[in-house]
């Protein structure tokens, strides 16, 4: 019961955060990345319990690409099917900066209440 409440809260939070993190990952690198590589980078940063499942990365990548925030190209692979490599667009960088600002404000706002709760 409690467990499912926590999971639901995490899922609600992740709704927009996955997009923010993916944009940040792609903005921070010079090279183009494909789905599995991106998922692995997140996993490496994610010690212990994963905040979100790697399976949720793929549909969000596609959605960002459909919205024009990412471009993609297909490269044949020797070890399997062709891979789709993603790169952030100029528009994506602009949106990322806006997201970043929203995230900072949200975090500071929420922290104010949570920290206050701890001190009481």
């Amino acid at each position: 019961m409690e467990e499912s409440q926590v999971r639901k809260f995490q899922k609600d939070l992740n709704g927009g955060l996955v997009a923010l993190v993916l944009l940040a990952v792609l903005a921070a690198t010079q090279e183009d990345l494909y789905g599995y590589e991106i998922a692995k980078r997140l996993q490496k940063a994610n010690e212990g319990e994963a905040l979100f499942k790697e399976g949720t990365v793929y549909p969000v990548l596609r959605a960002l690409s459909a919205a024009g925030l990412l471009t993609s190209r297909i490269v044949p692979s020797y070890s399997g099917p062709p891979r789709r490599y993603y790169r952030i667009t100029e528009e994506g960088r602009i949106v990322l900066n806006q997201y970043r600002e929203v995230w900072r404000q949200t975090r500071d706002f929420v922290d104010r209440f949570i920290e206050a709760g701890i001190h009481v």
Binding site: Q43, A50, E54, V60, A66
Partner: peptide
């Protein structure tokens, strides 16, 4: 890591609804 099938299915369902609307 990747997620159980029903979790992944839920992610696709959510994203599809959003992309369709957009």
């Amino acid at each position: 890591t990747y997620g159980a099938p029903d979790e992944v299915a839920a992610a696709y369902r959510d994203t599809e609804a959003k992309v369709k609307a957009a």
